[in-house]
Design a protein around this nucleic acid. Structure first.
Lengths: 292, 292
DNA sequence: AAATCTCTGAAAATATATTGACACATTATC
DNA sequence: GATAATGTGTCAATATATTTTCAGAGATTT
């Protein structure tokens, strides 16, 4: 029997054919509906056993539903699951309205959306929260360092963390000077390392030296993880692939900003005070226009 | 190898072991994470094929994760799925899977998505394309400058543009030195200015001086537009509001990366050549690990 | 109550999945 | 630049899953 409706979900197919199902076939159908779709994603043997029926019963029933055999049924269920999970991601409301789909901006936005989504869903919340508390801890110094490309992110991090808390240091990207900083690192200090591919050997050495001195290391890296990971206490992976010769750091930036926002929230009363004083200083120097 | 943590989800296990995975194992890991958990619920043959690796690779990897074999891994994934579906709330969007909706990460991600979407749909494609051609034009010099916060973005832009084309200058954020640069600016040069609130008066002065000399000005600013806009030839507005005391620069970064990507595409043959030479230089200096 | 029909699961036959052994290719190391 | 180490896929063996066949158990009809 061909599929009456090739786009129907298995659930719908079962409803549709329920009347023609035999007793033990219904037993399986119920078992599947009760735990949908997981109860149909194992092997026919296991699935049958869980439903309390024999394997031929299951095989016959899926054929009744219009599938060629159990594997066909299995594949169909899987596809449904896939569609459900990737549903929101596929939603492309980020298109640039007046450009064709193939315009770079649209290709780019799609890749970026994908990356952000991946990055977000791979953050371990608990780890994030603990890292935040560590970053807010002003008992120790906070060091920030980046590589060739990520230097800019380290700089951005520095600027913001400096506004939030005291005792922040940006280690310049010239690795020759790093030992000078390490000299003063003590237990309880925090070192934020940005390292995306191509990973820099110097950063790994730095991490090792810092770890030896009891410094807590927060690593922000790409999805493949820098070798620094072996020394790091907190690791955040950012998806960075875009259709281009280099890697995107938008998700890296997002993770960084999220960390900054969380740290700020953690230290709020103190931070507000700092912001106000900073504002007064700006007013005084008249370097900036008042925002209107 | 025993399971280090028998209650960990497969996703967590992958994260935990990611550093020790080999290249093609990661290929599979990524494929699974991208379509989790569906991409791991078919047979090892199909799963491997979808990820573009061989079956033994998958088998070896799941053993690394601590499973006895592929069937064990499969069963584990299934159990997760079952637990999740039968859980209280079924709604899990793309956002952080294991965090409550009110967690900062989720609030943050929502705001960021909103900003990116706004920014994208407000880009004028034609203007974008023309700006790209301007940025790719090596007849004139390309100057990049930013403000207090956006200095980091200017730096990022500089690093990338320098890889793509010749004749790029990053004007340091110390405004005292800007007149020196202006001295050499001529018609046909390009000046990329980053200015988000609070807008800096010096940048406006700089823009005026540059515009007088016939320099094409590309402005990347926020949704309210910096006063530099009146001097600028190309204006890109980025949505920057997040629930925090400061502004987010993720959409700014995205727009910048899009411009870089487009410029690179515009000049592709030349750029590829530059990248290759850059790679050789890196190989030579051995400052970086080869990506694996 | 006998005959027939339908349903069901046991078991064999067949197809497919999984794993292990090996050889080649690639990458690190000296 | 040679050598060792590691990673990867092909292939074969083994195990497991799937389907088919078939005989017996119930239900239904005559």
């Amino acid at each position: 029997m061909p599929l009456t409706n090739p786009t129907a979900t298995v659930r719908e197919l079962i409803r549709e054919h329920y009347a023609t199902l035999t007793q033990s076939e219904r037993k399986f159908a119920n078992s599947l509906l009760e735990n949908y779709p997981a109860a149909g994603l194992a092997s026919i043997t296991i699935v049958a056993e869980n439903a309390g029926v024999s394997t031929p019963t299951v095989a016959r029933m899926v054929q009744k539903l219009g599938f060629k055999g159990y594997p066909h049924f299995h594949k169909s269920l899987l596809k449904e699951l896939q569609a459900k999970v990737s549903g929101p991601t596929q939603r492309r409301d980020n298109w640039v309205s007046d450009a064709p789909e193939s315009h770079l901006l649209n290709r780019f936005s799609q890749a970026v959306t994908q990356n952000l989504s991946q990055t977000f869903s791979n953050v371990d919340t608990e780890s994030f929260d603990r890292a935040t508390r560590q970053l807010a801890n002003t008992d120790g110094r906070l060091y920030v360092v980046g590589g060739r490309i990520t230097r800019a992110l380290a700089d951005y991090a520095f600027t913001h963390f400096q506004a939030i808390r005291q005792r922040v240091t940006h280690m310049t990207s010239s690795s020759a000077t790093w030992p000078h900083y390490v000299l003063d690192m003590v237990e309880g200090d925090t070192l934020v390392i940005f390292d995306v591919r191509r990973y820099e050997t110097n950063l790994q050495n730095l991490a090792k030296l810092a770890a030896e001195r009891g410094v807590v290391i927060v690593l922000i890296t790409d999805q493949w993880a820098s070798p620094v990971a072996s020394e790091a206490d907190y690791i955040f992976n950012c998806w960075v692939e875009i259709p281009s010769a280099w890697d995107s750091n938008i998700s890296t930036m997002m993770l960084l900003e999220a960390l900054i926002a969380a740290t700020q929230e953690e230290k709020w009363p103190e931070t507000r005070d700092r912001y106000e004083r900073l504002d007064q200083l700006f007013d005084h120097t008249r370097l900036f226009r008042k925002f209107s």
